[in-house]
């Protein structure tokens, strides 16, 4: 049994390593995602004007803008993990090489690292550019971690579904956003609380519950999505 578990983990890690190796060959996701996030950041910051928004308004508005930037940047980069496999016709080889759940785990890890990298890049710049005063940075970091996890888990599963369809790009947004909206609403509420310095309360648990449900659903549904 331990042997099975270790081959499974080795498969998942191999997929994860393969994703990043392919990524560093072209640096497509890193470049586009980074630039996309930076462009939207600049658009938001420029539109707010040189003075920015007042503290009271900023508490209400800025967390929303941060999550909108993160959501759309993730939507620009995450679906590629599966779309590329179908486009370069490597999906069949991958079906033969790895167990579906290990493959999903590897892809999920790749999505997670990509999302966390994005958050680590975007959030400090966003906070600096909008001169946002965060009262409890620890809570904000926790919300970003939990929210980023849900974002990656939901997007990875939806990406696996749309990769086999036509009109992939638009379909991803149409299909992923209703799934991610509950997460977004809870994360925005929590981020507002973190900026204002309120305690986290039960909403953080709800966010973790969402992460857990979507991850379990992902592991459960991925085999039927992946294998024809």
């Amino acid at each position: 049994m331990w042997r099975d578990a270790s081959t499974w983990a080795a498969e998942a890690l191999a997929v994860f390593a393969k994703e990043w190796r392919c990524e560093f060959r072209t640096r497509y996701a890193l470049n586009t995602l980074g630039l996309f996030a930076f462009t939207t950041l600049v658009v938001v910051s420029v539109s707010l004007g040189p003075v920015g928004v007042s503290t009271s308004r900023g508490t209400a508005v800025l967390p929303v803008l941060l999550w909108v930037i993160l959501l759309f940047s993730a939507a620009a980069g995450l679906p590629r993990a599966f779309v590329q496999e179908e486009e370069t016709q490597t999906a069949t080889a991958l079906r033969l090489a790895a167990t579906p759940s290990a493959l999903f785990c590897g892809k999920l890890l790749y999505g997670l690292t990509l999302t966390f990298a994005l958050e680590i890049l975007v959030t400090p710049v966003f906070v600096a550019m909008t001169s946002l005063d965060v009262k409890s940075p620890g809570l904000l970091a926790a919300v970003l971690a939990a929210g980023g996890f849900g974002l990656a888990a939901g997007s990875t599963l939806v990406a696996a579904i749309i990769a086999q369809a036509r009109s992939k790009g638009t379909l991803f947004s149409v299909m992923a956003f209703p799934v991610l909206l509950p997460l977004l609403l809870i994360a925005v509420e929590l981020s507002r609380g973190a900026v204002a310095g309120d305690p986290a309360g039960v909403a953080l648990l709800q966010l973790l519950l969402y992460d857990a449900s979507v991850t379990v659903a992902g592991f459960m549904l991925f085999p039927v999505v992946w294998n024809p």
Partner: peptide
Amino acid sequence: ALRSSLEDRDQRARLSAAYAVLGLVVAPFL
């Protein structure tokens, strides 16, 4: 929209069913 963008009958049934089950998982949060 997903259904209409998949032509193969079996593929359409399989993928859209997976999406509908994902809906069951997300619905309680809503």
